[in-house]
Design a protein around this nucleic acid. Structure first.
Lengths: 210, 210
DNA sequence: TGTAATCTTTACCAATTGATCAAATTTTTC
DNA sequence: GAAAAATTTGATCAATTGGTAAAGATTACA
């Protein structure tokens, strides 16, 4: 008896494994540029080099692909923030956080844009996750307030401090086209991330030292 | 003889004026959330409270509306940067720039998101403008390098400095949903922009003073 | 007030879209 | 090597999409 869709099988076949990966890879390419509504199954199928019905054999709907991608993304996206520990040196902790976020922007720009697309749309599918995000940020904010009270970090609004780290690092994924256009052929090479890291480190280190 | 489309008439009628404004207003709402491909004429027409053919009487195509909106946006978007003058006090000039960009994020969030959508898509329609942008940024970078040489501004990469201002201010338009979710009902009111301004001013002032 | 120009509506069209189905093909398993 | 399971394909569908044609309604203006 042929299963109607591959997704339900207990054990993933070799083919299933490979095709699903190819689809997700292609979908990430397409979704991250055009957003959910702006992307078509045909487009994704073509990018994955297979027919549309074939693709739909592995994922029931367009939304199923998108949901899976978003889910995977959210799972790892906040890891760097989770790693910020109260018992570390405040400025080093913040610098590490910036560095890690910048590495993510460099190594996973499509994931970053997928997330930004979702937020731009009003985050319709990740309301729960936003709630989790709030509690994580609140928790880390408390740590920072402690550092400030101890005179180990400049007094400021920790929420907005976190926003500014998100913004400055994510910028290099979302606005990549603009960044490259502005830097010009000479400075838009791979080294731009090192330049960014150097600049951001200085800005935040000087800006936040007590 | 009835003109096929209203746009070509020399003088704009009262009705033309009003309807075109209503369409652009509605289109800005829709495009800024869903992007170009994710938005439909029906959607825009409904938001503008008119029938689709009626809307298409004023704008030939969906793209015509989008082009006009993008054009208008780019026209005013860079004004704050243009206003940065070499003969001002470096830190005050930068602070004013931040304040103005933040006001734009507060007062014109839809325009900001429209722009971000366009950039996320790879900026297909604004290649020329990106070239103009580069020369403007290069020009202002030279001014900043002068300030640094004179010891009136901390030494850093001026391009990345400008990026960080764009990123931190634009963040409050693009990631508004996330910002509000994280701040929570207590602090997500209109005052969040004042908090942001206070924080950013401190960060950049301390981070960039020589 | 009459008429020409402008505006609006109804009906429509061809292309694209997300998705289905049964038949044909390939792969795995015994 | 045959049966069973998994995979692929081509044909198809209903809904949506961007856009048009033409007739009817309204407005501006002499």
């Amino acid at each position: 008896m042929a299963k109607p869709r591959a997704a339900e099988t207990r054990k993933r076949t070799r083919i299933q494994q490979e095709k699903e990966d190819r689809i997700l890879e292609a979908a990430l390419d397409v979704f991250s540029v055009h957003g959910f509504r702006g992307s078509t199954i045909d487009q994704i199928a073509k990018a994955a080099d297979m027919s549309k019905p074939n693709l739909l054999y592995y994922f029931r709907t367009k939304e199923a692909i998108h949901r899976l991608l978003i889910g995977r993304l959210l799972d790892t996206w906040l890891d760097p923030l989770r790693e910020m520990k109260a018992d570390g040196d405040p400025l080093s902790e913040i610098c590490s956080y910036i560095r890690r976020k910048l590495e993510m922007a460099r190594d996973y720009p499509r994931e970053g844009r997928l997330f930004t697309n979702e937020i731009l749309r009003g985050a319709p599918h990740i309301q729960d996750e936003l709630r989790d995000l709030k509690s994580l940020v609140d928790e880390k904010s408390k740590i920072m307030l402690g550092w400030m009270k101890d005179g180990r970090l400049a007094r400021c609004d920790p929420h907005h401090l976190i926003f500014s780290i998100w913004a400055t690092t994510q910028h290099y994924a979302d606005f990549d086209v603009q960044v490259r256009a502005v830097l010009g052929p000479g400075k838009a090479g791979a080294g731009r991330f090192d330049d960014a890291a150097r600049y951001l480190e200085k800005l935040f280190l000087e800006g936040l030292k007590p």
